[in-house]
Design a protein around this nucleic acid. Structure first.
Lengths: 287, 287
DNA sequence: AGCTGTGATACTCGGCAGGTATCACCGCGG
DNA sequence: CCGCGGTGATACCTGCCGAGTATCACAGCT
């Protein structure tokens, strides 16, 4: 009586996302009436109103907001349990959790560090296989949370390490990456103020979680796209200085004097018990 | 098809804990056959063997070990979602997550800090109610994880902060607490070696998660019990120096020169969005 | 061999998730 | 003022599946 089925959580999350029973039911692949009843039953069981029914759509109550947050976390944890269990399917002997790791990295970043890490780890005795999973910007967190990945390389302050165990691997300054032929490229250093409002070089905007921050700059989805736009003299961006490894001839990197430092962490779900993971982290922290 | 109901997880965890279908079924309040079938169905659905059936009890496969870990985390997350949603029941306006916080502290510890914190927070405008929930040794982690508490005070290195957000509040040395009439009480300082094997004063053993570490000392469950045993000259213990506030006349505290320092943190579930919590943390970090 | 304890199977029953059809209610435009 | 479209709720039925009882199959004892 004081628990809840994942089905009910899935249903509620769908309604909370759509704020519309019909669309939510469609998304769930069921009809609308059972969905209505399921939500009613959930509210009865929790003894709490989750939705305001306003005769023209619905809205969340305070408790509904809470359940949306917490329920999503619970669903992620459940999905993670399923994924990781399936993945461990082959490994039979008790004690170890599986035979290989999935490492999530931001696509295109960490080249140098990643190479060193994979090399060093491959030389460890009994090293497990490592699948590198390139992910979208800031997507690593969700991947760790719902089990698509076991371990990730993350950049603070861009990624939040909330909810994970992590070890810091390196810290670096940031550089502005500008078109090589632009006047800014001749500067020895730049400050954030210098690059904030350059009319002909608006800062590129990355999508984080599918939504773009406002601003004049172009919206970019991946690094290649960004690199091209910079080479064309249409935009600029700010990156950790290790990004120098992938610069084109048409790019110039100028150190930023007052940008926050960026720290690369290796992070993993806090309750992980995998031997292979522990080994990888140990290898990483010795680099 | 790629999800799992909490009921199935509950069932599996019970079997994984008991390693015995009959006892697990009893614990779950159902009969044994449905449990057998549920586990079979779970294995089919995951496409993975979870148990070795050895015609004399069962044992976990590697995948089973993984599901035990991950599944427990998922169940905790679900229980937390339910608890926090219920708690938020009253609060109706969207935006905030509830009207009060549950703060878990190790019973008997943190007196001074706790007083300061609660006083300071109570003076904040719009302060929420705070329920202080005394918990057993090292039990705060589970309480945060399954929603019995929203925020906790923890001691590193005793508690692990894995999986939580936290802010360090203070660091202190540790002291040995010995009977006032014992020869050791006359020392200005002690080292860990000095107290490791005193024949007539074996170190008390605390239960952590229900299991006691091995050793000659008496098993204690709470601080009062411990205080009494020390006063009786039967045992001694090691505590952060803030424990001095609750010492009896029959106790003496002797600084330890080489014990690890203890840091007090305020910690909370990483995905928490509560305004009241943010306020409390801000207050705490200003102390 | 017989006993005991293990998990699996066979079969039945009841509840509940799900579907279809319909209602009740509101807002809107003619 | 009266349809009309769109909302979520209700009524009713059906079929699946979770749970119970009884029993089996098998291994290790004595």
């Amino acid at each position: 009586m004081d628990t809840v089925e994942t089905r009910e959580l899935r249903y509620f999350i769908a309604v909370a996302d759509e704020l519309h029973f019909g669309r939510a039911a469609e998304r769930l692949g069921i009809a609308q009436p059972p969905l209505s009843r399921a939500i009613q039953q959930l509210e009865r069981r929790l003894g709490v109103a989750l939705l305001h029914r306003n005769r023209r759509g619905v809205s969340l109550t305070g408790a509904g907001e809470v359940l949306r947050q917490e329920g999503r976390a619970a669903l992620d944890a459940t999905a993670a349990a399923v994924r990781r269990t399936r993945r461990a399917g082959g490994a039979d002997g008790p004690g170890d959790t599986g035979d290989h790791l999935v490492l999530a990295v931001k696509a295109g970043a960490f080249h140098e560090l990643l190479n060193k890490l994979l090399d060093a780890y491959a030389n460890e005795p009994g090293a497990a296989r490592i699948d590198v999973l390139p992910s979208g910007t800031c997507e690593q967190e969700g991947m760790l949370r719902d089990g698509r990945a076991d371990v990730a390389l993350m950049h603070t302050p861009f990624n939040t390490l909330a909810g994970f165990d992590s070890v810091a691997l390196m810290t670096e300054e940031q550089v502005a990456i500008v078109p090589a032929r632009h006047p800014l490229a001749t500067r020895r250093t730049l400050s954030l103020a210098d690059i904030a409002d350059v009319p002909d070089l608006p800062l590129a905007r990355w999508s984080s979680n599918g939504v773009f921050p406002p601003g004049p700059g172009p919206e970019v989805h991946d690094q290649t796209q960004l690199a091209q736009l910079i080479a064309l003299g249409r935009t600029m961006t700010v990156f950790p200085e290790s990004a120098r490894t992938w610069l084109w001839h048409e790019h110039a990197a100028v150190p930023l004097t007052d940008a926050p430092k960026v720290t690369t962490h290796i992070a993993w779900p806090a309750h992980s018990r995998s031997r292979a993971l522990a080994e990888l982290v140990r290898t990483a922290s010795r680099l």
